[in-house]
Amino acid sequence: MTAGNMPSTRTVKWVLIGLAAATFVGANAHLVYVAIASQPACVEHIKERGQRPAEFRAAAAAC
């Protein structure tokens, strides 16, 4: 390659900024999709108030 064919550093910086922004937006879109599309399975939990201090129950049972 000759010096005339090389992209300028300004162009390279903007391409890298664009790639970083696209990666950021894509990752966040994926997280939103997974949060909306996934439905966790029902898990056994305490339905009544526990006797020991560390026993907690679900705020509202989903199933």
Rank of each mutant, 00 (worst) to 15 (best):
V32I: 13
K13Y: 09
A22V: 06
A37L: 04
F56A: 12
A62V: 07
T11Y: 07
R52H: 05
A27G: 08
A37V: 02
A58C: 15
V34E: 04
T11W: 12
R49K: 13
A22S: 15
P53Q: 03
N28L: 15
L31H: 12
A54G: 05
A35S: 15
A35H: 13
V32S: 09
A29W: 03
I46V: 06
V34S: 13
S38A: 08
S8G: 07
R52V: 02
M6N: 08
A35R: 12
A62G: 03
A41T: 06
G4E: 12
R10A: 14
C42E: 10
A21M: 11
R52Q: 08
P7N: 05
G18D: 06
H30V: 09
Q51P: 00
G50A: 02
R57H: 07
K47W: 06
A58K: 07
K13Q: 10
E44V: 02
H45M: 08
T23F: 14
Q39G: 01
K47I: 11
M1C: 10
G26W: 02
T2G: 11
A60W: 04
A3I: 12
L31G: 09
H30Y: 13
E48P: 00
G26D: 02
I17Q: 10
K47R: 10
Q39S: 11
A54K: 06
V15Y: 03
V34H: 07
R52G: 00
P40K: 11
G4K: 14
A60R: 14
F24R: 04
A61R: 09
K13C: 04
I46M: 11
M1F: 14
A41E: 14
N5P: 00
A20I: 07
A3N: 11
P7S: 03
E44Y: 08
A35E: 08
P40M: 03
A35K: 15
A20D: 01
T23D: 06
V15L: 12
V25F: 12
G50D: 00
A22E: 02
W14L: 15
A61H: 08
